[in-house]
Amino acid sequence: MSLIVGAYPAQPAGSQQEFYRGLATVPAVRGLELPYGPHGGSPWPAGAPAEWSAVVTSIPGTMQRLNASAAFGLASVDAAGRRKALDFAAGLHAYVLRLKDEGRQVEAVELHSAPHPGADVAMFRASLSEILEWDWGTTRVLVEHCDAPRPGNKPEKGFLPFADEVDVVRALREQSGGRAGLVINWARSVIETRNPDTAAQHIALAREAGVLAGVMFSGCSPDATEFGYPWIDAHLPAVEVDGAPPSSLLNRAEIERCLAAAGAVPVTGFKVGLPREGLTVQDRVDRLRQMCALIGGS
């Protein structure tokens, strides 16, 4: 199985070219999840093979813009906040076109149904419909589910409920020519209910609805760890990976269960964080190699 790797939370503060050259020795990796931040996207990472493809995630920029303005989001009922989010998405679109002009293959982009509170399903559908009118070529436009509000729990993201996102994507599949889809991040589904069963359930429901387009694996923990407070969305490695917190709920069995629930999907991969200091470049590459092996890559 070939994988998309969100390597940016694992890269060192320096020696990034050496890091990506090391990651290129892992045969299972076919591409990178690249972050699109509040001020745009980064250049293609030095050391990453030119033939690798990309999936661009808007979550870093979405969260930073949302932290600065509570009304920001593609699902916002505030007209100005929704327009700012659409302008942000237009910048992401321009970044994708720039990568393509450089000869990169961009498999997909990942969008999110902010804000919290106040995400509205009708506004999100209107925004996504507008975005799908832009020329994306063969690039898929995917909604990445983040945890929705739940009674008694403080949300990490608090965006639209899963069922609402499924309905929006399903309604727009024809308009998109089949390019719209839903991607499930293991931790973000589990954080919502604090139950590891939720990720596999979301995957199965999205597949049944005909909108499942991707599965990304990140871990989470019910306990405080070096990554932060309990249930933080900080991309913990699977428990079998060297140095992972022993309380990480992501493990080989959960990965296998979710892969079976998903079947064949266009995008499969993972995103894990590692400490910025205290690990060699080879340590980092080895830990990402271990994650690849858990997901079925070599």
Rank of each mutant, 00 (worst) to 15 (best):
K157S: 13
W136P: 11
A163R: 08
E133Q: 15
P149K: 03
S189P: 04
T193Y: 13
K154A: 15
L142F: 15
D147K: 03
W136Y: 10
L160G: 01
D147R: 02
P161Q: 08
W136G: 11
G177Q: 06
G137Q: 11
D167K: 15
V143P: 00
H145W: 05
V168N: 01
A171P: 04
L142N: 08
K157Y: 15
W134H: 12
A148P: 09
V190R: 01
T139E: 12
E165F: 01
V141L: 10
T193R: 12
N185D: 15
G178A: 07
D164T: 02
L142W: 07
G181S: 04
S176L: 06
T139P: 08
F159K: 01
Q175H: 08
R194Y: 04
W186S: 03
R179Y: 09
E144L: 04
P155Q: 04
V143M: 05
W186V: 00
L160W: 01
R170C: 05
R188C: 15
L132A: 13
T193I: 08
E133Y: 08
A171C: 05
L172M: 10
R140Y: 03
R170V: 04
F159I: 01
V183Q: 04
D147A: 06
I191R: 08
D135Y: 09
D147P: 10
P149M: 05
G152L: 07
I184K: 01
E144N: 04
W134E: 11
L160F: 02
V166K: 02
P149F: 11
E156R: 12
R188T: 10
F159R: 02
R194W: 05
P151E: 13
K157N: 12
E156G: 08
L142H: 10
G158S: 12
P161G: 05
A180Y: 05
A180R: 03
E192G: 10
L182Q: 00
N185R: 01
E174P: 00
E144S: 03
D147W: 13
W134V: 10
W136R: 07
E144Q: 08
D164Q: 13
P161T: 06
P161E: 14
A180H: 04
D135A: 15
F159N: 03
G181D: 02
G158R: 08
D135H: 14
E133M: 13
R188S: 14
L182A: 02
G178R: 03
R179I: 08
R188F: 15
P155F: 09
G137C: 11
W136A: 11
F162W: 07
L142K: 01
N185P: 05
K154W: 08
C146N: 13
P155C: 04
G152C: 06
S189C: 07
E174R: 08
W136K: 06
F162V: 03
G158C: 12
I184P: 00
L182P: 01
K157V: 09
S176V: 06
D167L: 13
D147N: 14
D147T: 07
F159Q: 03
K157W: 15
G158I: 10
H145S: 09
E133V: 14
I184S: 00
E144G: 06
A163T: 13
H145M: 07
G177W: 10
W186C: 00
L172S: 09
V166E: 03
A148F: 13
A163W: 05
I191K: 06
